[in-house]
Simulated assay, not measured.
Amino acid sequence: MDWQERLDSGADMLRQQAVRIPLPDAESERTLHENMARIADAGDRKRALLDDPDVPLTEVYEDELDDMRQSFEHRLLQVAGEDYYDVATAYMDGERDDWIGALAAYYLECYYRLQERYTVDEQFFFLVILRYPDCFTVNLSFLTGDIDSDGVRYESATHGGGDLTDSDREQYYADSQYSQHEAAEYLRGQIGCIRDAFPDPDSTPVEERRYGGFVHITGRDGAKFAEILDSLSPDPDRFDGEASTPGLVPEGPEARRAKQQYFTDVEIAI
């Protein structure tokens, strides 16, 4: 299989699929909580950077991308060890058929596609993480379409305003800074939904943490950026049985509903 064929195969790894991870014990519950807390902390850092007029929007997104890269590389190392690339490509080449290879291929594809993310206009990063009584799922894909009125929109003076007069460019810069401040305020109000969905298992009764989740959508069309971060309720009837081992599962009805709710003319790019 050549590299282009492997990329096409990798894209199929993400298309309408999700990772399902069992939660068999207290340690796995605590690890999930800590991982979600790190995602929330990254959102707080992004909010602070968006609100800093001395930080270009490109740097804000580079920081977010670096954090995501590290997160997926950490997952790859956890799942498959230092040889994760060989494990993932062996799975995509049909040389192995096990859950370790499947998850390594999924995470590696996420890792690669995220590196391309900010060079591609009109494409949105779509992430859904959901908690069920005995497991959690991670659903990542890349979508095209128009985001509805939910969420927040903001602009980057670095990416636009090239044909404006000096005075208009100053106004455009001020407007862009204000829109980024509005985006920071939006995130300030929404980041709590991640922490609420995955509370500390050491201080929260199990009945209060059996279900939870969130959806995060972010992307840009030229100089215009958009962001949605919101709670998402898991479907209690999604799975028939308990999760015995990690693996890939079809995306759930929750993700499908979120795509229809937040987008018009949505299409799956990857």
Rank of each mutant, 00 (worst) to 15 (best):
Ser176Phe: 06
Cys193Ser: 09
Cys110Thr: 12
Asp41Gly: 02
Thr89Glu: 06
Ile191Pro: 01
Phe126Ile: 08
Phe126Asn: 09
Glu29Met: 12
Ser231His: 09
Ala90Asp: 12
Ile270Thr: 15
Thr218Val: 14
Ala48His: 08
Ile217Cys: 11
Gly247Leu: 02
Arg153Lys: 09
Ala102Met: 02
Ser28Lys: 09
Cys110Asp: 11
Leu14Gly: 05
Gln190Thr: 10
Pro201Lys: 06
Glu254His: 10
Val55Pro: 10
Ile129Phe: 00
Arg117Lys: 10
Asp237Gly: 12
Thr158Asp: 14
Asp150Val: 07
Ile228Arg: 07
Arg96Cys: 00
Gln190Arg: 13
Met92Val: 11
Tyr61Lys: 01
Gly161Arg: 08
Arg195Asn: 07
Tyr154Gly: 05
Pro22Tyr: 01
Arg238Trp: 13
Glu27Ser: 07
Asp8His: 12
Glu73Val: 05
Ala183Val: 10
Ala40Ile: 03
Gly160Ile: 13
Leu49Phe: 07
Leu23Phe: 08
Ile39Trp: 08
Leu248Pro: 02
Phe125Leu: 11
Gln115Val: 03
Glu251Leu: 12
Ala42Trp: 01
Ile268Gln: 08
Pro24Gly: 08
Leu108Trp: 11
Val249Asp: 03
Arg195Leu: 11
Gly192Met: 01
Tyr107Gly: 00
Glu95Cys: 02
Phe239Gly: 05
Phe214Gly: 02
Asp121Glu: 12
Phe198Asn: 09
Leu49Val: 02
Ala174Val: 10
Leu76Ile: 07
His216Gln: 15
Ile21Phe: 12
Tyr85Glu: 13
Ser176Gln: 02
Pro22Trp: 00
Gln17Asp: 03
Asp235Val: 11
Tyr178Ala: 14
Val128Asn: 11
Arg47Met: 15
Asp93Met: 06
Thr165Phe: 06
Tyr85Asn: 03
Asp237Arg: 14
Val87Ile: 06
Pro56Phe: 04
Arg47Gly: 02
Arg195Trp: 01
Asp8Cys: 08
Gly222Phe: 06
Arg20Gly: 01
Cys110Glu: 10
Glu5Gln: 15
Ser156Tyr: 05
Gln190Cys: 12
Arg131Asp: 09
Gly161Ile: 08
Phe214Lys: 04
Ala226Val: 09
Asp44Arg: 06
His74Pro: 00
Ala104Lys: 00
Asp54Thr: 15
Pro53Glu: 06
Ser176Tyr: 06
Asp67Ser: 12
Ser149Val: 13
Gln171Gly: 05
Leu248Asp: 12
Tyr211Trp: 15
Thr31Gly: 00
Phe263Tyr: 15
Tyr154Lys: 04
Asp8Gly: 05
Gln17Ser: 10
Arg210Thr: 13
Ile147Thr: 11
Leu229Lys: 02
Thr245Tyr: 03
Glu62Phe: 04
Thr204Tyr: 03
Gly81Phe: 03
Ala226Ile: 04
Arg38Ile: 04
Ile100Asn: 01
Met13Asn: 02
Leu32Glu: 07
Ala269Asp: 15
Glu73Arg: 14
Thr158Gln: 12
Glu267Ser: 15
Gln177Asp: 13
Asp25Gln: 01
Val206Asp: 13
Thr144Pro: 03
Gly151Asp: 09
Leu77Ala: 04
Phe214Ile: 07
Gln115Asn: 10
Ala104Tyr: 00
Ala37Met: 13
Lys224Val: 13
Thr58Phe: 10
Asp93Asn: 14
Tyr178Lys: 13
Pro246Phe: 10
Ile191Lys: 03
Asp175Gly: 03
Ala90Ser: 14
Gln115Cys: 04
